[in-house]
């Protein structure tokens, strides 16, 4: 089946390998620690892409639930790196505006903002900024735990900038 939407998905090794090699055994799906929260199993997402349902694949919750733990990748009998496949789909979805109402893309944007500005990140600042962008109330929930970290001396908001930020720009 040739899809009208092939332009929505990047032409990368991770995508091609999944399309060409998958034997649809479901090992990836059953290995995934977050499978029961997914709307389609990872195997089904591979099948969607293979059969040209690109639009549908980029709309799944599944791709945003992948934490890239690579358990699927090391088990896959066709040696497909499904973690990389999911990353490629995330990238394609983000590029084509498929994910505006999802939290994960917001997190990545915030993360990238820090890197582009400082060359490094600070987890506490990342968390705060991300929460402010999405649901500020969450910050309240974090207070008790933050206090614990503060007591243990593992909480710090300082962030050093690398000397020449241009060195990480293409």
């Amino acid at each position: 089946m040739v899809s009208q939407n092939n332009h929505l998905i990047e032409d990368s090794y991770a995508i091609r390998a999944a399309i060409e090699k998958c034997i649809q055994c479901g090992t990836c799906s059953a290995s995934c620690p977050l499978n029961n929260y997914m709307d389609y199993t990872p195997r089904q997402v591979v099948l969607m892409v293979r059969e040209g349902f690109i639009h549908e694949a980029l709309k799944t919750k599944t791709i945003w639930l992948c934490s890239t733990c690579y358990l699927c990748a090391v088990r896959c009998p066709a040696k497909i790196n499904i973690g990389e496949f999911m990353t490629a789909l995330k990238r394609s979805a983000l590029k084509n505006g498929y994910s505006n109402n999802q939290l994960y893309p917001k997190l990545m944007e915030t993360y990238a903002e820090y890197i582009n500005k400082y060359g490094r990140i600070s987890e506490p600042r990342l968390m705060i900024k991300f929460s402010l962008k999405t649901s500020p109330f969450k910050l309240l929930k974090m207070i008790p735990f933050s206090m614990k970290l503060l007591r243990e001396g593992t909480l710090s908001f300082s962030l050093e900038k690398i000397q020449n930020i241009e060195e990480i720009k293409i």
Binding site: T87, M108, Y111, A112, I115, G119, I121, E167, I168, I170
Partner: peptide, 25 residues
């Protein structure tokens, strides 16, 4: 000296080429 963030698995979702540059530096 003056190391920078590796980009982890997040930055590459925004910018794959850029993520390799992060590691490369």
């Amino acid at each position: 000296e003056d190391w920078n963030c590796c980009g982890s698995n997040l930055y590459r979702v925004v910018d794959e080429k850029g993520s390799y540059l992060l590691g490369a530096r």
